[in-house]
Every structure is written in C-alpha cells, then in structure tokens.
Computed example of a mutant assay.
Amino acid sequence: MTGLYAALDIGGTKIAAALADGDGTVLRRARVPTPRGGGTAVLDAAARLLDGFAAEDVAAIGVGAPGVVDPAGRVVSATDVLPGWAGTPVREALAERTGLPVAVVNDVRAMAYGEARAGAGAAFRRVLHVSVGTGVGGALTTAGELERGAHGTAGELAHLLVPERGPVPCGCGRRDHLEAVAAGPAIAATGDPAGAGGVLGRALAGLLAVLDPDAVVLGGGVAQIGAPFLDAVTAAFRAEALPPLRALPILPAALGTDAPLVGAALLAKRAVT
C-alpha cells in the first residue's frame, strides 16, 4: 500500500481535490467551479481534477458529496443546491473513470470524519459537527466513527423549522428552515452574520437537548468569518440552552475548509486497509 490517497469535496459552487498521506495530511490541492448539467458533468469535472494526480501512486479515492448518500455510494436524495444530482451513482461512476477503489459519503459527514479523527473533535467522544456554507449541514460522530442513522440523515439540521423567514429559500424551497436564514446566501443577502449566528445558536439550544453530545464543532466557509458569526452562535446557545448544556464546548473546526478533504482521504484509506 502506497499510503497516498485522493480526496474530492463536491459542492454547489466548487469541486476541490487533494492528495493526502495516510495521516490525512494534505500534500497537494486543486479546484474548479462546479459545472452545471447534472451528475455526469460534475463527475467528469471531478475525474479531470484527479487526472492531475495521475503521476502519483494513489491507492484509493474518498469523496464527500452533497445529498443523502446510500451505502453503495449513490445519491438517493439531494436539494437544488446541485441541480440534477439526485440519483447519481458516484462510487460506481468514479470507479469506472479512474479504475480505483472509491469511498463516498455525504460532504458534511466527510468533514465530520476529518474533524473527529484529526481535528477539533478528536478529544471528545460524541460530537455534533455543523457545517455552514452554501447550505447548512450536520453530522454526528461517536468515538471517531460516523453515525449514519436508519435513513442516512443522522445529525442533519438544514431543515429545522425556525420562526424567522429567510431572504433566500432553503435548498428544498422553503424559507422557514434554518438553511434559509443561516447559510451563506442568506448572509450575503442581509450582510448580517451575527443575526444568522444567533438563529443557529437558538436552533442548537433545542437540538442539543435531544442529542446531548459532548461538544459541537462548527465548520464550513461561513465559519471562516470568525468572531462575528461564531460569537453570536455561542452567545445565543448559552442564553437559550438548558442549564446542564450551557457549558458545552462549541469549537471552530481545526482543519478549516480542508476538513472534508482530510475526512475523505481517511475514509479512502479505511476502505482499502
């Protein structure tokens, strides 16, 4: 086994690729805008990115893909954040294009696995991972392992109902969902990261009473805004949470926007070792 793994992070606006070693350390990066035209166009662009690593002895590919992904690596459900994506057989199609073993999970689960194994979640047993970017996503890990749930949606929070009405629709089309208020497009429309952070913090106060994890790790592109967003999330959560939960750690992702790439690479390694 070479110890080199390729990783893909497929998103609504860009496809990122990385070459990583067996510890998840990113050695090389590449990215392109996400093409329109459905799953075939997206996977063709992803495969071309991986061609840049062709000179390396890559053992396997890990993919973080938007939507609900079944154990066979097929997207069974997706919002319009990536039109024409639902039904795409990601693992099968990339394996045919590359001739390599392919592991596929939801993109936020890839981020969560990276943070649980090599980032901010590594010191905690049960963690809710929240990603805020073009959309809002969530995933749960326990002892460094992903929780899938009965239908592959464990930890998802984009569609939590909120009293506010978003300036742009959620990926599913509704405006009374958390994603419509707290995701990047909503913040761009209002210019109010603190307001969006407050909505997310209040939503977490209710959700964490149900899940009762050891910590929350907050990542994604919007989290890179820093204090105006993160401080608002934390303050709103502490003000609304049940007393036993108020001291629960809410941590920024240690791996930044590399988290899904690190997680995908580590999942690729796991698939072949």
Rank of each mutant, 00 (worst) to 15 (best):
I15P: 11
A20L: 08
V26K: 06
L27Q: 11
G37W: 03
G38E: 02
G39W: 05
L49R: 05
D51Q: 13
D57P: 14
G64I: 02
A65K: 01
A65G: 03
G67W: 02
V68K: 01
V69M: 04
S77C: 11
D80P: 06
G84K: 09
T88V: 05
R97A: 15
G99T: 02
V102A: 08
N106E: 08
D107Y: 07
V108I: 01
G114T: 08
R125K: 12
H129G: 11
H129A: 09
V136D: 10
G138M: 02
E145A: 15
L146A: 01
E156V: 06
V162E: 12
G166L: 10
R174Y: 13
A180L: 06
A182W: 03
A182F: 00
A183Y: 11
G197F: 01
V210Y: 00
V216Q: 01
G219C: 02
G219L: 06
I225S: 10
F229A: 02
L230Q: 13
A232K: 01
V233G: 01
A236R: 03
P243M: 00
P243I: 00
L245A: 00
L251N: 00
L251M: 06
L255C: 12
L255P: 09
T257C: 13
A259H: 12
A268V: 09
R270M: 07
A271S: 15
V272N: 05
